[in-house]
Structure formats: structure tokens, C-alpha cells
């Protein structure tokens, strides 16, 4: 049975959402993880707790609050309207914002662990050789933390692909805009179109398995390098 046009559209949309989310999370998550790994501020634990919240919060709670916060009557939504912008629910940018919050810990925690594992010594040595802060980060931290970056990106991507509850609550099911793969599967099941549901579900299952397998293989290979 071939995939329908809306299903193919849903797959592309999902890949686009996961890619954009992962790239933006890399930009936001790297400094946050660096700060969490290095700081001695009393703020560290509260910030770490907030970062990890999406791990334990039911997606419905997240979706419900986002719907209220981002809606035209909510604080964020009314601010956006005052600035002449469209409100975020039911839009692709809205899903990106929601996915970034939802997948934040999956990017930050591997990075934070990788940064913490490097320790002070390599950076101090580089500093005595007059490497600038940026130089030290790019030439020492990034290569040493490579497994962390890899794990964070893959997990953030995969977790966004599997996102469901939040999208369901703020998406509004618009083809090409918010009708993602997990929602498409849900719709098929609800409509008793089990064949279509099987097709997409089996695809997603295979994808998830391959991603995790590849991640494990890559990390296994890159670990020895770290200590060379």
C-alpha cells in the first residue's frame, strides 16, 4: 500500500521540525550546558531543575500551559500581538518553540556531562599557551565533547520526531504546518484506518531503532579517540 500525499507531507514536516529544533537547541543548549557544567553559582541547581522539567512533566501539562501562555489572552501572546506578530499556536514556529522546550533536557544533559568530564586541566594548559577563550572552546572543548554533541543532537532530533502530546494540544492539525507524523498515526488509529497506521508506525519504529543503534556505534568508536 503506497503512502498517501498527506502522510508524505506529514513525514517531511516532521523531519523539518526536528531539524530546525535540533539546530536551534544546539545554539541555545551549548552555552546553557557550559554554564551549568562550570558555574558555582547557587542558581545552578534551580536552573538545572527547570531544564530537566520537561523530562517529568506530562506533555499535556506543557501543551495546556503553552496554549494559555502563547494565546492572545496570555502574557506572551498579548505581547506578540502588541508587536504586530501572529500568535504562535497553530503555526510551525509555534511548534518549534514548543519542541525546543520539550526536547531541551535531551540536548543539555549530554552536553553538560561531556563538558564536566573535560575538567579544568586542558583549558588551563591552553590558557598558559595564550589561547583565547573562544579558541580554547573551539579547539579543545568541542573535539573532546564530541560524543556529548552527537548524543545531544541525535536525542533531541529523535525526541522531537516522537513528540505527540504537545503538538496535539497546540497544533490544530493543519496539513503542511502542524500535522506531524505522530498526529497522523493517531488520526489513522482513531479513524480505524489500521493499515495506514501500521505503515507509519512500523516506519517510525525502524527509524528509532536505527538511530539508537547508530548512536551507540558512533559513540563506541569515538570514545577511544578522546583519550588518545
Amino acid at each position: 500500500m503506497p503512502l498517501s500525499e498527506t502522510d508524505i507531507q506529514a513525514i517531511w514536516l516532521t523531519l523539518r521540525l526536528a531539524s530546525v529544533t535540533t539546530l536551534l537547541l544546539l545554539v541555545v543548549g551549548t552555552p546553557l550546558a557550559w554554564w551549568l557544567a562550570r558555574t558555582r553559582s547557587w542558581l545552578k541547581q534551580p536552573v538545572a531543575a527547570i531544564t530537566s522539567l520537561p523530562l517529568v512533566l506530562p506533555p499535556t501539562v506543557l501543551g495546556f500551559y503553552l496554549l494559555i501562555l502563547l494565546g492572545p489572552d496570555g502574557p506572551v501572546g498579548s505581547l506578540m500581538q502588541d508587536l504586530g506578530l501572529d500568535t504562535l499556536p497553530f503555526t510551525f514556529p509555534g511548534l518549534v518553540v514548543a519542541s525546543m522546550i520539550y526536547s531541551l533536557p535531551f540536548m543539555v544533559q549530554p552536553l553538560q556531562n561531556a563538558f564536566a568530564a573535560i575538567g579544568n586541566r586542558p583549558l588551563e594548559v591552553a590558557a598558559t599557551l595564550r589561547a583565547s577563550a573562544l579558541d580554547r572552546f573551539v579547539t579543545i572543548v568541542v573535539p573532546l565533547a564530541r560524543p556529548g554533541f552527537l548524543t545531544g543532537m541525535v536525542l533531541a532530533f529523535a525526541h522531537t520526531v516522537g513528540e505527540f502530546g504537545v503538538v496535539l494540544m497546540i497544533g490544530g492539525n493543519i496539513p503542511g504546518e502542524t500535522h506531524v507524523l505522530s498526529v497522523a498515526i493517531y488520526d489513522h488509529v482513531e479513524a480505524l484506518a489500521y493499515d495506514n497506521a501500521h505503515l507509519l508506525s512500523a516506519g517510525l519504529l525502524t527509524f528509532s531503532f536505527v538511530v539508537i543503534l547508530l548512536l551507540n556505534l558512533l559513540n563506541k568508536r569515538s570514545h577511544p579517540e578522546m583519550f588518545r
Binding site: 496554549l67 492572545p72 489572552d73 497553530f90 493517531y186
Partner: peptide, 20 residues
Amino acid sequence: RLVQGENIAQTFQFVASGNA
């Protein structure tokens, strides 16, 4: 300009929260 809820309860929520 349509947004769709998965069921009628969610549809109501979209309107009640002012998002539609």
C-alpha cells in the same frame, strides 16, 4: 483559517482560551 481539534472537547478549549 480552520484549526482542528482531535475531538470536540479540544475544539472547545481552542475557542475558550482565545486562540481561535
